[in-house]
């Protein structure tokens, strides 16, 4: 029997998800033994026409990482959807929008203005901005459309499963691949990770005080967390209580609070809002000034509560983008 084929593809991503595969080092030989890698732009040179030549169902599974913001990305993922039996949103960006999704906090015009005009390292006296249609030396050039906002993969195509994490830890990837090979698939739309929040497996959970109160937020940039203590109890905002476990507590073991890359637990409608409500319920301030000081001590609340999930959240995008659309 021929080995099943898998495809890897990337959209708006940093390449970290590819790194998960590369990090396997010689173990990748085991993977190659089990499956054939049909597409992997980071490592294998293939053109779109090669993929277009596939028959639907030729490739068993496509692992797509990265968020979607360009029309070209949309075309590619739609193509893969057509040709592959299963599509797995691989990593936080495909799952929820991820770090690139924070661009939804601003709008396309601002991004272009910063990138091509305002940035101190940019010298652009003619004010040239990339255009979708350009004629250079008599040739018509076409660039993909830069959408007004970033979308998670499931807003563009139908997604079968989600592998969360930034990047997903390989044991989860192995679990998913194993399940696919053995045909023991969970219900469609499942996030392949435990359903409980990170506190469940966090060793520091035992150090939580009976009555936790938060009077100020510290930053890891300016102070070092206690290596044993629960981060929240120590005054650092930790996304752990609102984030799925299964990551292997990689950040916690590095003495960094959870940043929330695994996304919300199945019952949480909106991860940022749920944690915000939880934190607000434990904040303590005697006066209006103290309350303001407490709120102000959390630098960049949007980027903290929605670091990985802004496009997939109830907020989706900033109101500016919303207005620009209409």
């Amino acid at each position: 029997m021929a080995k099943p084929k898998v495809a890897f593809y990337w959209c708006a991503s940093c390449g970290g998800c590819e790194e998960t595969i590369v990090d396997l080092a010689e173990d990748i030989l085991g993977v190659v033994e089990a499956v054939d890698i049909a597409l992997w732009p980071v490592a294998i040179d293939m053109k779109r026409k090669d993929v277009e030549a596939w028959e639907p169902g030729d490739v068993a599974v496509a692992f797509i990482n990265g968020a979607v913001r360009l029309s070209e990305q949309k075309e590619w993922v739609e193509l893969l959807r057509e040709k592959c039996s299963l599509v797995i949103a691989f990593g936080s960006c495909a799952h929820m929008g991820g770090i690139p999704g924070l661009a939804n906090a601003t709008n396309r015009e601002e991004i272009f203005a910063n990138k091509y005009h305002r940035s101190p390292t940019v010298a652009n006296p003619d004010g040239i901005v990339p255009q979708e249609q350009t004629n250079v030396d008599g040739y018509d050039l076409e660039l993909p459309t830069f959408w007004k906002d970033v979308k998670p993969l499931n807003e563009v195509i139908d997604v079968d499963y989600y592998l969360p994490g930034c990047p997903p830890p390989f044991d989860l990837v192995a679990t998913a691949v194993g399940a696919i090979l053995e045909g023991k698939l969970p219900p469609k739309g499942s996030v392949i990770a435990p359903e409980k929040a990170l506190c469940d497996t966090c060793e520091r959970n035992d150090t939580k005080p009976d009555e936790m109160t938060i009077t100020e937020f510290k930053r890891t940039a300016t102070s070092t967390p206690d290596p044993e203590k629960c981060f929240l109890a120590d005054g650092f905002l930790c996304m752990g209580p609102a984030t799925r476990s299964g990551c292997g507590e990689r950040c916690i073991n590095g003495n960094m609070p959870c940043r929330g890359c695994f996304g919300p637990t199945p019952d949480a409608i909106d991860p940022g809002l749920k944690l915000l409500a939880a934190i607000a319920s434990r904040g303590e301030a005697d006066s209006e000034e103290d309350a303001k000081a407490l709120a102000d001590s959390l630098v960049d609340p949007l980027g903290t509560y929605y670091r990985f999930g802004l496009p997939a959240s109830m907020l989706k995008r900033s109101a500016d983008t919303e207005r620009a659309q209409t």
Partner: peptide
């Protein structure tokens, strides 16, 4: 679903 974070107790 409960991860035992105990925030609800307080």
């Amino acid at each position: 679903r409960c991860a035992g974070c105990q925030l609800c107790i307080a």
